[in-house]
Each structure stands twice: as structure tokens, then as C-alpha cells.
Write a protein that binds this DNA or RNA. Structure first.
Length: 268
DNA sequence: ACTCAGGTATCCT
DNA sequence: AGGATACCTGAG
């Protein structure tokens, strides 16, 4: 099917924004594994027309939400005052097209636990191995992300084989807690941001950074502002008096993505 | 060989 | 409370 997306939507920027690890480049676009589906998506021509190899039904019920197409990012970008915050204005102009995907909170939690002290290719590799090892097979060469019970029952040696190293004990404990129902994602989804963050940080292997990533990318809490080395450096340089969070609530997380993108791609 | 990568737990003052 | 340090592993 084809769809026209008039709001900000740039596949490459989303793919490289560090929120998704199961996108792979294809000839015409990207192959995306999510929610037990595999999607091939590519841009047609120079406009905003896209080709997707799924039915309208699956698009309406899954991918449309996955790409967060009900939220108008252009309108959010327009809140940035070029006079008052020229740096963010430039960053947002540069990062236009980035969106925060709606991804599975369980999958994101494990993925960001894996991410610690790994670079993006290494994260991808570990996640892919994990899926191939214990996820349901979707088609010839794609596997879904394994559920909590599946991961909890995986032998330690197999986890080590996925290149997880010292994170194995974190993953085992979190998977066990999720399989036992101690971590209830549906319940957590109803908590206010602060309570959700506190609860996430009680999990073994989850610190501030992973908790904030899980908030933003797993629970779609768009005000969550993960601070990694890049963003910290940037904040010190560009916002010595502090970032004006109050101006952009409840979308500080989107601003973080623009800043992160700008700092990494343009100003290296 | 050596450093670094979107950190966190743990062990010190 | 706040700072230093160990930790698996793959890539350049």
C-alpha cells in the first residue's frame, strides 16, 4: 500500500536516532521488525509518498501508531522561538523528520539494559542474536523479540553467547521479575512520570540513563530527557545556565532528540 | 595492543 | 551523599 505523510517524517533520521535497533537498510528504504511484524518501507520520489508492503488493515492497527502519526511534530517544532533559543531552533531544523516511535516497553527495557557501554552496531548485534535464539520466527530470516518467560528460561550460556557479558545478570533478573508479574507494564503505563521513573530505577541494572530511555522510547513519555555523554557535553557548552525545560513541556524528550541528532551529525 | 562505546552496581571516603 | 572503579565484548 501507499501512504502520504505530510508531517515531519524522515526514515533515515529515525533509523539513526538511537531509539530503534531492528531497522535495516534495504535497496529502497528500511526493513523493520516490530510487534511480531516485518515491514518494508521506502520513499517514493521526492515528496512525502511512501510505499509499505503491508495491508491497509495492519497499517491502521499497528504501523500508524508505531510511527506516532497522530502527533503533529511540525507543530511541536514551531513552539521553538528562534530569537530566544537559536541553538535549539537550528537543531530542530536539522533534525526535522525525527519522531519518537511507539515501541514495546518490555523490548525497550531489555534493549536499553543491553545498550550500556555498547555502541549502536554492538547493540543491534546482541538484540538480533537474542531474537534469533529465542524469539518466535516470523518469516525466513526474521524473529520477534522474545517475551519475558522465554528470556527468563534461557540458559545463562546462551545469553552469554549473545555478547551480553556482565549484563546477563541484569537481564536474567529483570526477565524473571517480568515473567513472574512483578513488573506489570500495563500498570506502570498508568503511573505519573515521576512514579514511573522511581519504579524503573528499582530494577537491577537500570540506572538514570536507562530509566529515562525506557520512559521516552518504551512508555512514550515525551517529556523524558535522557542525558548521555553527548547531551551532557552539549548542555554544558550551549546551556551553561541550564536547559529551559519549562518552555517545552511536555515535549522535552523530542527536543532532546533534536539536540542529540544535531550534536552528533553536524558538529562532530 | 589499546581505547572506547548512549552505564550501573559496588565499594570506598 | 559524592567520587572512584570494575565490568563483558566487539570494533577501529
Amino acid at each position: 500500500m501507499q501512504v502520504e505523510i505530510t508531517d515531519d517524517f524522515d526514515l533515515k533520521k529515525i533509523a539513526d536516532s538511537g531509539q530503534c535497533f531492528r531497522w535495516t537498510r534495504t535497496e529502497g528504504g528500511y526493513r523493520i521488525v516490530a510487534g511480531g511484524h516485518v515491514l518494508e518501507i521506502g520513499k517514493i520520489g521526492d515528496g512525502q509518498q511512501f510505499e509499505l508492503n503491508c495491508s491497509e488493515d495492519v497499517y491502521e492497527q499497528f504501523w500508524k501508531h508505531y510511527f506516532d502519526l497522530d502527533l503533529q511534530y511540525a507543530a511541536i517544532r514551531a513552539k521553538i522561538d528562534p530569537e530566544r533559543d537559536p541553538y535549539l531552533y537550528k537543531a530542530a531544523a536539522c533534525g526535522r523528520g525525527i519522531r519518537i516511535l511507539n515501541q514495546n516497553p518490555w523490548e525497550m527495557l531489555i534493549t536499553f539494559i543491553i545498550s550500556q557501554r555498547k555502541n549502536i552496531p554492538a547493540i543491534r548485534l546482541s538484540v538480533e542474536k537474542l531474537c534469533k535464539l529465542s524469539g518466535n520466527k516470523i518469516d525466513e530470516d526474521n524473529w520477534a523479540f522474545p517475551g519475558p518467560d522465554r528470556l527468563a528460561s534461557l540458559p545463562e550460556a546462551q545469553l552469554l553467547g549473545c555478547g551480553l557479558g556482565y549484563r546477563v545478570k541484569y537481564i536474567q533478573r529483570v526477565a524473571r521479575a517480568a515473567a513472574d508479574g512483578e513488573i506489570d507494564f500495563d500498570r506502570m503505563a498508568k503511573l505519573p512520570d515521576k512514579d514511573l521513573r522511581d519504579e524503573l530505577m528499582k530494577l537491577y541494572g537500570v540506572g538514570v540513563k536507562v530509566a529515562n530511555c525506557e520512559m521516552l522510547f518504551g512508555f512514550h513519555r515525551l517529556d523524558s530527557f535522557p542525558e548521555d555523554v553527548w547531551v551532557l557535553r552539549l548542555l554544558q557548552e550551549q546551556y551553561p545556565d541550564g536547559f529551559p525545560f519549562s518552555l517545552y513541556r511536555p515535549y522535552n524528550g523530542i527536543m532532546q532528540q533534536y539536540l542529540f541528532w544535531y550534536r552528533r551529525t553536524v558538529q562532530i
